[in-house]
């Protein structure tokens, strides 16, 4: 086996916020009717998390379940554990109409850290980032300039973003450009 590397191998940029490519991230996509009980049961027994509600996120230990659409869930786990978790879920869901795939290498993940976070995101995505409109624990799939991406806030000063691996350098350049020192707007 060749060594697995992430798209930008942990590039960082320090500006209004700190932009960081977070390296290898285990990702599993689960496609099924999320309203069905066997799906929630399998998720609970393999990952320990509840079924997230609409646009929600549920975490337990180092595994998180992100609601992507009424029939798609994204599971985040340590990179090395992804194959194992996917195999367990596949076994549990053998009799259900469901698809589980390890897609860890298909995407790139970024972390933004800093107080200017909301404003950095608002410059790129058509999302109302006012604190009373977009809270912690909501997953939002949208676009950052021209690239499709999803993001959520883990606390007031930390956000996580993922996009397709093929647009990782584009995303890193975007995030770095809009967080260049001196470009603060101070809106939020």
């Amino acid at each position: 086996m060749s060594n697995a590397v992430s798209a930008l191998q942990g590039s960082t940029y320090d500006g209004v916020v700190r932009v960081e490519e977070i390296g290898l991230q285990g990702m599993i996509t689960l496609r099924a009717d999320l309203g069905e009980k066997p799906i929630a049961t399998a998720l609970k027994s393999v990952c320990g998390t509840k079924m997230p509600g609409q646009r929600g996120i549920e975490s337990k230990g180092d595994i998180s379940a992100l609601w992507m659409s009424p029939d798609e869930l994204m599971l985040l786990c340590p990179y090395d554990a992804a194959n194992d978790v996917a195999a367990k879920l596949t076994t549990k869901l053998a009799k259900t109409h469901a698809l589980v795939v390890n897609v860890s290498d298909a995407r790139a993940s970024f972390r933004l850290q800093g107080a200017g976070l909301r404003e950095v995101i608002a410059k790129l995505a058509p999302v109302d980032m006012a604190p009373d409109q977009f809270g912690i624990g909501e997953v939002r799939r949208t676009r950052f300039a021209q690239a499709a991406a999803a993001f959520w806030l883990t606390d007031d000063e930390t956000a996580q973003i993922f996009c397709f691996r093929s647009v990782a350098p584009y995303m890193f350049n975007l995030l770095s450009t809009v967080s260049r020192p001196g470009t603060e707007v101070g809106y939020f």
Binding site: Q54, R55, P70, P126, R141, R143
Partner: peptide, 12 residues
């Protein structure tokens, strides 16, 4: 109606 987001035109 699926994800409940108020999406503006460029997201659609």
């Amino acid at each position: 109606p699926y994800c409940g987001v108020m999406a503006e035109e460029t997201e659609l």
